[in-house]
């Protein structure tokens, strides 16, 4: 999966309060699979609630914490 557009960025570089939609999850590991299963699918609204070594993201109506390095696998498009 390649993301050519500039607007699609990994959530790990988003700032606190940034909102947008998920464009995709890269990777074939269990973390990526679990993220998809809890609904982190393309088109789903997403927001970053906490930044730092451990980030908190809101996917739809659920909040998850994960490490910044792992959050890099979630690609999203920030709302203008």
């Amino acid at each position: 999966m390649a993301y050519a557009t500039d607007a699609v960025t990994p959530l790990s570089i988003w700032s606190r309060g940034d909102e947008g939609t998920i464009e995709g999850i890269s990777g074939a590991n269990q973390l990526a699979a679990r993220l998809r299963e809890v609904g982190a699918m393309p088109g789903v609204p997403v927001r970053v609630l906490r930044v730092g070594r451990t980030v908190v993201i809101q996917v739809g109506s659920s909040r998850f914490c994960l490490r910044k390095t792992d959050a890099a696998c979630i690609k999203g498009m920030k709302a203008a």
């Binding site: 973390l31 993220l35 809890v38 451990t54 998850f64 914490c65 994960l66 792992d70």
Partner: peptide, 11 residues
């Protein structure tokens, strides 16, 4: 010994 494992937890 092993790779650092991912951490995903619902709040």
């Amino acid at each position: 010994r092993g790779q650092p494992t991912p951490f995903l937890l619902e709040l």
